[in-house]
Design a protein around this nucleic acid. Sequence first.
DNA 1: AGGGCCCATCGCA
DNA 2: TGCGATGGGCCCT
Length: 286
Amino acid sequence: MMQAHTMDVTEDDDYARVRDAIAFMSQKWRSHPSIEAIAAHVGLTPKQFHEVFRRWAGLSPKDFLAALTLDHARKLLQEGANLFETSLDLGLSGPSRLHDLFVTHEALSPQEYRKGGAGLVLAYGFHPCPFGEAIVVATPRGMAGLGFIDGDRNVGLADMRARWPAARFVEDQALTAAYAARAFRPELWQPETPLRVVLIGTDFEVRVLETLLRIPMGKATTYGRIAARIDRPKAARAVGAAVCRNPVSFVVPCHRVLGQSGALTGYHWGLTRKQAMLGWEVGQCR
DNA sequence: AGGGCCCATCGCA
DNA sequence: TGCGATGGGCCCT
């Protein structure tokens, strides 16, 4: 029966499988479930399970799951320890500086922001991505929002509307599709064709988001370090709150911010998704 | 008034 | 040592 019901695995539901596997793992990690047990739990044979991870992350299940451990998180933090120290001056070209160049960002003026986005027309659309379905929000000046759909599109849309209550939202898949196509492929963010992002928020928030843009893929930092970087060494908690409100997830990589202990703490779009992103990036980086 | 924090302590193996 | 739990401080909306 098991055989008879074993279904074809397609790329479309790869993420769903990965997501379920991660969720199962984080529940049972204490008892060290075997790969076989995890595969069975998500309804796959070990062989299929292996294929899914290869296709989705470019990693074996074992390597992928290893990327989700506390040990690995700590290693990430160690590697990222001097992420900000080396490039305090703008002329210096460290790796973080490089990344920074590929995303151009401009902040909406405080005045514009205070109006809650009044007069702004925001196009939105829904698109598949490596982490489920995404909602993309764009202005003529660049990408303003990126979120995720878990079941109900209206929930995701409401999440975005609540950020700019006075803006007019217009569905425009054609316009947002271009952003969606590039948002998850950082190798396409080139100096001559940067991914344009519009950061909308308070002064403090924008400064935090700008700092996030300097964290390269595959690296990580902590809330406290960001606070120090923006000259507010004791504001780690406020940084957490600002990171939490990041409208352009993934592109502004708030998933690369961890607690000082290496704990993943929280994620607006679900901790499981944060884990998925961190594991996926390990595969992208080799 | 509360957070996607952080640090110092303390009590347990 | 290395954890988990607790308490107090801190700073932005």
